[in-house]
Design a binder for these strands. Structure first.
Lengths: 135, 135
DNA sequence: GGAAACTGGTTCGACATTAAACCAGTTCCA
DNA sequence: TGGAACTGGTTTAATGTCGAACCAGTTTCC
């Protein structure tokens, strides 16, 4: 078996993801979203606080501030002060935001699904299992 | 078996890659390289022309110009006009560039290898196979 | 030959990103 | 209690990024 170079796999993988995302960037933009903003929207349900988003998405805090500001201005996000901790801002998708998020992730699913389609169902499940194990 | 949502896998995968790369960004910077520049260095052998690099790395051409300029200034890269086609610039790693590239990819390998280490050797090979099939 | 269309690479200027410093609210602990 | 240390979020100022327009060299095709 060929020797495995982790950096090589990382790059391979990275190229795959970048190719896919850049192939749908234009369509996502048509929804009124930048791809980075879509990532934010997609995580808001699970991580409703900016600091959490910054952590989970590996984005610096000021960038999150910016994205949230834009998303709020676009009517995709609502922001309210958390009553438990007055420093925190709890984020919440608006109906429009949820719709845009779903459309966006659906675009991504379409494009990545094309690649996944080259694998058998069992292989797809295997892939997900491997990734989860690594995270 | 749980239904597979491609966008979910994409995100999972993306998070994995980002976590890994940001964990070594500082060490890579210590070599005098930005991570993006490392990607460029790592592909120069296989793709010695800026236009090719832009294509393979999914980076816009002006950015490549910039990275190459910096890498050349740092002494990591040598640039010469291609005698076949006077528009093209053939790129070549200098010894210092090759060394930095190897150290950088080695850092990346170390960090990603830690994650890969959670998989068996067979699973690692399987993962690579799946990724290659999708690209 | 030579004009039109094309391709590799760069420049410019507008925009996006982010590190550093900051403010406000919270927690810790003497 | 109260002040020192910490955390969530924002602002600012400096830097990074890249679309559009560009120049130079190449190919195409009459």
């Amino acid at each position: 078996m060929a020797k495995i170079d982790p950096a090589r796999i990382w790059s391979l993988n990275h190229r795959l993801l970048m190719t896919v995302i850049s192939s749908v960037a234009a369509d996502i933009a048509a929804l009124g979203l930048e791809t980075k903003e879509l990532f934010v929207l997609a995580e808001v349900d699970a991580h409703p606080y900016p600091a959490e988003l910054a952590g989970i998405l590996c984005i610096p805090k000021p960038s999150v501030t910016l994205y949230v500001k834009r998303l709020e201005a676009a009517g995709f996000l609502r922001r309210e002060i958390d009553t438990e901790d007055l420093r925190r801002h709890r984020l919440q998708l608006t109906p429009a935001g949820r719709k845009a998020m779903q459309q966006g992730t659906s675009l991504l699913s379409g494009a990545f699904g094309e690649r996944l389609g080259r694998l058998s169902a069992a292989q797809q499940a295997e892939l997900r299992g491997l990734l989860e194990k690594m995270l």
